[in-house]
């Protein structure tokens, strides 16, 4: 749980690490939900140290993003690890157009040209 502790210190920035799979899904959803609730406007997820992810985690990210939109906050992901990007790609979460729910330029799954 060092990652969450670390996130609490800086608060607006949360770093997650390790294998983020179905076995940790409930715990992750809870921690992220709690952390997100504490943020005023800007929330940053640092996913550089993620060593594995599955569909359950991608769903959590998506859900978190949808919550943040609803609450008028900005949730963004920074420096996603190669493993996370691969999971996104393999599971077909990447897309060229933003999801219907996403306003503006914020969709987590949108692949920008030149990326």
């Amino acid at each position: 749980m060092q990652s969450v502790e670390n996130g609490l210190k800086q608060n607006s920035r949360l770093a997650l690490a390790g294998e983020l799979t179905i076995s940790r899904a409930s715990e992750l959803a809870a921690s992220i939900g709690q952390w997100l609730a504490e943020q005023e406007t800007v929330a940053v997820l640092d996913l550089a140290a993620v060593t594995a992810a599955d569909v359950s985690f991608l769903q959590i990210l998506c859900a978190a993003h949808r919550s943040s939109l609803r609450e008028g906050k900005s949730l963004s992901v920074v420096s996603p690890s190669r493993e996370l990007l691969r999971a996104m790609k393999t599971a077909g979460f990447e897309r060229r157009q933003p999801c219907t729910q996403c306003t503006g330029d914020t969709c987590l799954w949108q692949v920008k040209e030149g990326l």
């Binding site: 409930s26 992750l28 959590i60 859900a63 949808r66 609803r70 077909g92 999801c99």
Partner: peptide, 18 residues
Amino acid sequence: RITAQVENIPRLQELDPE
């Protein structure tokens, strides 16, 4: 070409993570 359809994913509060 695999496309995940994410339209049914709710907000975090309503999400059953499993």
